[in-house]
Each structure stands twice: as structure tokens, then as C-alpha cells.
């Protein structure tokens, strides 16, 4: 899931400036779970903007804000509402989907933080930095690129103290997690295989993936 955090509301006012009529959009998936772009958050934003002199002319929480076709259909309903700007309460991807579909300025209400897992309803933790070359098979299913603050691929630095990372005494050292997991799995021998460093060629952006073309090339 894409984890988002709401920007300070003052930032939204600063971005909107002196337009009057505003459209609010959210996202039914990630941002609803993160409580940054579900029905309740849109209602709260409407109230806040109204108190600050804006008129919210429409609100919608599509199933996914990052699906272009779906978003296009959703936005049709507001074609004649007279909005002068859109405040998007989704991730940066969903915001850009909207921005590509409307002619008015589009402003993000959220900061997009990471790809993570839902540990419980209110706790999200980062698990994958989408490096384009997954090594989880060698590391007991614990990601060294994400769980090690330096993304080291060949084992730990000397910086752990009491099992915690040098960057943050509240965070476990990723390599000690990997060690514990491999030990449990009886795969400690995997530690001794030097990982060729992955390079960054597989991680150049912006990327696109075309399933049809890929299939044709196979």
C-alpha cells in the first residue's frame, strides 16, 4: 500500500490562493486506509475550506485515484460545477492522474511517504523501496534495501548498538533481522555468498511497463 500523510492544512490554503470554487477528490484504497483521503477526511477538508472562505462545489472518493479511466468517469459528474481548482487527497500518483485529466490547477493535500505494510489499523511500516531487482530470496524475506538504513547488500556496517540501527535507537538493525531470520530458516550459508552490487540501471526513472508489448516480445 502507498502510505500518505496529510500536509499541514495551511499549506493547502497557500496553494489555493485566491480561487473561490474547489473540487475535492480522495481515494477509496490507500488514502482511505491511511485516513488521508477517505469520506471522513474529505468532509473535514470541506469544513475547513468553507471556514476559510472557499466554496467546495463537489467531492468524490473514487475506488482508485490512480486509475486513469476510472478517474475520468468520476470527474465527468463535476464538469459543470464551475470548480477553479482541485485539491487531491490521495498519493502523488493519484494527484497526477487527476492533474492529467483536468484543465484547472491541481493541488496535493498529502505527502506521499512510502510503500509499506499495514501492521495494524493505525501503524504502517516501510517494507519495499521498489529497487527493481528483488533480493528477498537471499535474505530470508527481510529487505536489506529498505530495512537497512544504508541499503547495504553484503551484511551490516559496524553501527548497530544493542541490535538497533545507528540512525535510530528505536529501529532494529535490518541486517540483524536478516541474520535472525536466516538462522531460523537454516539458511545462514546464504550470508556468505557475496552479492554483486546491483547497480542502478534497473532503477532508472520514469519507468513504464507495457504488458502487451512484454508478451509480444517473449
Amino acid at each position: 500500500m502507498i502510505i500518505t500523510k496529510a500536509k499541514p492544512t495551511q499549506d493547502v490554503l497557500d496553494m489555493l490562493g485566491n480561487v473561490k470554487k474547489v473540487l475535492l477528490t480522495g481515494c477509496g484504497e490507500c488514502s482511505t486506509t491511511c485516513r488521508t483521503g477517505g469520506v471522513e477526511e474529505l468532509d473535514a477538508m470541506e469544513k475547513f475550506l468553507t471556514e476559510n472562505g472557499y466554496e467546495v462545489v463537489g467531492k468524490c472518493v473514487p475506488q482508485l485515484s490512480c486509475n486513469k479511466n476510472l478517474m475520468k468517469r468520476e470527474l465527468k459528474a463535476f464538469k459543470d460545477s464551475g470548480y477553479e481548482a482541485v485539491v487531491v487527497m490521495s498519493c502523488g500518483d493519484g494527484t497526477q492522474t487527476v492533474a492529467g485529466l483536468v484543465d484547472s490547477p491541481v493541488y496535493p493535500a498529502n505527502d506521499t511517504m512510502f510503500l509499506g505494510e499495514i501492521e495494524r489499523l493505525t501503524l504502517f511500516s516501510e517494507a519495499c523501496r521498489m529497487c527493481g531487482d528483488c533480493v528477498l530470496g537471499k535474505t530470508g524475506g527481510v529487505c536489506p534495501i529498505t530495512k537497512c538504513a544504508k541499503s547495504l547488500v553484503n551484511g551490516p556496517c559496524g553501527g548497530a548498538k544493542n541490535g538497533k540501527c545507528e540512525t535510530n535507537p528505536d529501529v532494529e538493525c535490518g541486517w540483524i533481522l536478516i541474520y535472525d531470520k536466516l538462522k531460523k530458516l537454516g539458511q545462514l550459508d546464504k550470508l556468505y555468498v557475496a552479492n554483486d552490487d546491483k547497480g542502478y540501471k534497473k532503477n532508472l526513472y520514469p519507468m513504464t511497463i507495457n504488458l502487451k508489448e512484454d508478451a509480444a516480445n517473449e
Binding site: N154, G155, P156, G158, A160, G163, W175, I176, Y179, L188, L191, Y192, A194
Partner: peptide, 16 residues
């Protein structure tokens, strides 16, 4: 780093 828990991780890295 000789004083390290688990020390095997440091030895492993030394070998690499």
C-alpha cells in the same frame, strides 16, 4: 568490529 552481537555477522562480512 570484534565486539558485536551476533559476532558471526562481522566475521561473515570480514570474509567477504
Amino acid at each position: 568490529t570484534p565486539v558485536y552481537d551476533p559476532v558471526e555477522l562481522q566475521l561473515m562480512k570480514m570474509k567477504k
